[in-house]
Amino acid sequence: MAEPPGPAARRVVFTRDGVRRGVLRSMPLWVGMLPFGVVIGVLSAAKGLSFAETMLMTTIVFAGAAQLVALELWADPAPILAATIATLVVNIRMAPMGAALAPWLDRLRGWRLWGTLATLVDHSFAMAIAEQRAGGRDAGYLLGVGLGIWISWIACVAAGHLGGGMLQVPPGHPLFFASIAAFLSILVPLWRGARLDLLPWLVAGLVAIAAHRAALPVPLPLLLGTFAGAGLGAWMELRGRGAPGWK
């Protein structure tokens, strides 16, 4: 995926100004994240997580979709293995992001590289790719967007936990539709057309429903559905290309 560094890549810099610009550009996203963050906070409170536990998870995991999935299957005592596996399945999607950002990341060393990677999320990835394609050379921008989202994310979840703890939202309340709504709205921009996605998505949903009906323990329905759908999608795509080595 990494291209040989051309003259453009050689001039990649990392400046405080770039970081500041990234933080500023992330601000419009804060409003959009507010409901999602608040939902995570309310759900954490409803699942019996203390404020300190909620803040710790939000600060060091910092991945909304994964936190949502893990919280949905949360129990007492905490499902250590199930939460970890579910998080891995949700977050493995971030693995190719760093590789795609290689033109910037390859020029960084030490904390600038590994710290920037710690803040990588879908939004900062998308904005950094756009900046890169527009000829941007300041890798500090990526860290700035990530930091801005991180700070607002922590604030939103904190507000949700404090508010949710006060309101005592009962189970089955319409507010909990927010978790489904969040994933549905994430699905919309992921749609790449019926040819690529229709059958895999259908199979993913149906297998998950079947596994759920069969009363398989969490996160098995999620895992089986995901890999049945993604496996079918990959098989269809590679068969169409006639790629060797896939039998």
Binding site: P96, G98, A99, D106, L184, L187, L190, V203, A230
Partner: peptide
């Protein structure tokens, strides 16, 4: 992901599978 995919080029099927994961994951969830 960055460290590994930079060092070794993942086989085609891994890359294609990774691209299909997010959509199928959220479908299986909802």
């Amino acid at each position: 992901g960055y460290a590994v995919l930079r060092a070794v080029r993942a086989p085609d099927w891994v890359q294609v599978l990774l691209r299909h994961l997010p959509g199928c994951l959220f479908m299986a969830y909802v």
